[in-house]
Nucleic acid binder design. Structure first.
Lengths: 194, 194
DNA sequence: GTTTTTGTTGATTGACGAGTCAATAAACTT
DNA sequence: AAGTTTATTGACTCGTCAATCAACAAAAAC
């Protein structure tokens, strides 16, 4: 009993199922059938809407990056001072929705994907540039010509905290991650009035 | 014309070939045949010496961790002050042999493996504990009760710098990574006399 | 009301890859 | 010299999986 206008619904279901399955298995060794099953459809339909498995992965990646970007933008919109903006970026980066197990695992696996799929690499590079540019804008007034150095360090630190999250057992602790990042900033920028 | 005592030679060749192939493809989607071919033997022989593909991966992981551990230990042996020891750890972590493309790519992929293979997770946890304990020993006299905080931050930063290396194009720049890590320490510990 | 478009799946194809096995041969043991 | 252990591989099995296809159904367009 086919309803019309299914395409966006199906696609979204597939994208979410992909992230779930990658998180569940902890790898990209996920079959289209598994994804399709979790999304409540046949694998043939998944191939119908996306051309290939790779396209499904890329769509999932875009989804995660879009969510993250939106959350950062939203948090940034309510702020004015550089300090508050830095805090907003950190809060968004380690928020419950972005720092949850599935998403972190997917993130790591997309990093791997980027090594063999140029489009995946491009997407990650976009994310990196945007983060860097956001950090730089906040840091310039606070760190002057050391801003670049600090931004690169903080960027790597954030990625490293994500990376380490996947090895931990137990619930993710975004607050602890934010504390570590804040500590870094406090050290780099000198005592820091919020 | 079988020479005896081939086992260790073959195994080492396979381990090295594994790292090369993982680095080349940027993923764990490497067939035993590819590995065996690069190591100059048939895939059947690879299965003969290692029981399974997973065992080959784990051996490769142990190899990388062992190399890294030996380099750190060697660098540490020639030092006395905490500052010099911290520098030694950083130098070893980003040395040409550990920070080369292949090794970094393998490292990332082992991180992924750790999510589905308990033994891989165990190995990485051992690495993390050792690094942490080494850092802590140096930091205690320099940072007092903030040592833990700084060690965790530095550990994550090191991993993050590795992670970011895989996205870069061009030759790896260990010196820049060391600079970033030193900068972090300098900020956390206050100006720092070497 | 027939044709076209959209949604959907079960069955099939075709490739690939991990792991096994039988067979062959050189070296050591007794 | 006969027997055992170690080294080695080509051929094979068996499973899995991405991708395709034929077929069916309902809505939309004409």
């Amino acid at each position: 009993m086919p309803k019309l206008g299914m395409e966006p619904i199906r696609k979204e279901a597939l994208v979410k199922a992909t992230i779930t399955e990658i998180g569940r298995t902890g790898s990209l060794d996920v079959t289209v059938s598994q994804i399709a099953k979790r999304a409540g459809m046949s694998s043939a339909l998944a191939h119908h809407y996306f051309g290939s498995k790779e396209d499904i992965f890329l769509a999932a990646m875009r989804h995660i990056l879009t969510l993250y970007g939106a959350e950062v933008r939203g948090a940034l919109a309510t702020t004015t001072t550089p300090q508050a903006r830095l805090n907003a970026i950190l809060a968004a980066s380690f928020s419950a929705s972005n720092f949850r197990r599935e998403a972190v695992s997917a993130w790591l696996n997309f990093w791997v994907l980027a090594q063999s799929v140029p489009e995946a690499k491009r997407l990650l590079a976009v994310y990196q540039r945007r983060l860097r540019s956001n950090l730089l804008a906040c840091l310039r007034p606070l760190a002057g010509d050391r801003a670049e150095q600090v931004a690169d360090g903080l960027g790597a630190l954030i990625d490293g905290l994500y990376l380490r999250e996947v090895l931990k057992s137990g619930a993710p602790d975004g607050a602890a991650a934010v504390r570590t990042a804040r500590d870094y900033l406090a050290a780099e920028l000198g005592r820091w009035e919020e």
